[in-house]
Design a binder for these strands. Structure first.
Lengths: 130, 130, 130, 130
DNA sequence: GTGGTCTAGACCACG
DNA sequence: GTGGTCTAGACCACC
């Protein structure tokens, strides 16, 4: 359950948690029918407020990614993996679209956009260390 | 002075205003030593509160992009264009780096990343209508 | 948390607040990692508008003296004390340099400058009552 | 008539002008009964708004430092020099008192205050070049 | 006319 | 509970 919280990010913590769980499911790191950690357990691990984990889990339930098993906890639902893959794809498509749109609106020259993409890609086959 | 406010964005209005002014300077749409619109004028144009514009302008002053000419208004400072260009470049480099890093950490396959870039780029020579 | 507001001063209230907090950190009266009073709390204590305190706190954040812990409040950042000491030192060095420079430019005789320093120092081991 | 305007200073321009004239009189650089430049002349020299010079001159008249000679302009009044010396003295005494009071209230150690005074004095026999 | 500060009060998301 | 943003409107000094 490798979840990395960035408290400095503008993305809310509950969102980081739920998103990383979904993307872990998409990647197959958590399997269908597998249980996810309890609220108390995960909040302890990540050193964040239990309410925050609870909110992330509520989100996952509302989206049908996990289902409650009474008295046991939450398990990854049938079909969750495919849906998580689709969402992951959509998230990053939107992210790149925002980048391009914003760059165009800022009158950044196409050549400069190309230069950015070239430069960053050449440096990042694994995450940067900034 | 083409500034477009997106009230739905998570980016605060004052931030949109100051950023768009900086990028307009970067693009040469506002020249060094030129005055920027008065707080009251711009707030009227954009139909937002003068305090919000004032806050954007305060940001610009703190960053040294504009200087106050007392009783007269705010003028684009010497060397502002180059600094704005550099900042614009840095902003978009960071944006694309975030995209890539985040995608890698989400274990998105390199081929899928390529597919996203191809697909979106082919579609966006002008801003999307989302 | 002894903060004294001088409403008659030309120095803005938000500036007095942020500076006094920085100097309190420099003096060790507020410790690293300690939370500073909430916006509402301090505004109540000082009988000033919450927005004014918020602006002071925004300044402190921009300077990296405090960091926001979301939903919890603001905490003094690592290394803040040393930076606050340095700033305090710089502020007063500049203040005295301004005094001297201005005096010289006004062609005040060195003996008269000495006389002023002697006279005032002998009188002030505690703050004056002006 | 050596007047140096600092547009970046917090001290209003009209105040800089009137104060520097008074201090020039205190220093004997402008003599009793001598005429000071016309509003138009000085505003041209300093490249500032004539209204600003006019306001400075009004101040000087109100304080009795200069008197109007109909159709001719403004002349330094009898006894102006002594009064200007006294004011100059008071201004710098207050300036140094502010420095000390503020430093005490900021809990700056007396040794550090001494250190500042030593350091700056050793460097400044003529104005600094900051 | 200009920017700058301050107040008052509303609304929001986060924990 | 916390900070953050935005609106509305007043007041000030400066040019």
């Amino acid at each position: 359950m490798l979840i990395a919280i960035d408290t400095g990010s503008t993305q809310p913590i509950f969102d980081q948690v739920s998103q990383q769980i979904k993307f872990a499911i998409a990647a197959g790191a958590i399997r269908v029918n597998e249980m996810i950690p309890s609220v108390r357990e995960l909040s302890r691990q990540l050193a964040i407020n239990p309410n925050t984990v609870a909110r992330a889990y509520r989100l996952l339930q509302d989206e049908g990614v996990v289902v409650s098993r009474r008295g046991m906890g939450l398990a990854v639902s049938e079909g969750a993996r495919e849906r998580c893959r689709i969402e992951r794809r959509a998230v990053f498509e939107q992210m790149f679209r925002d980048f391009l749109d914003h760059a165009f609106r800022s009158r950044l020259a196409p050549e400069e956009i190309d230069a950015i993409i070239q430069k960053v890609r050449s440096r990042v086959s694994r995450p940067s260390e900034d």
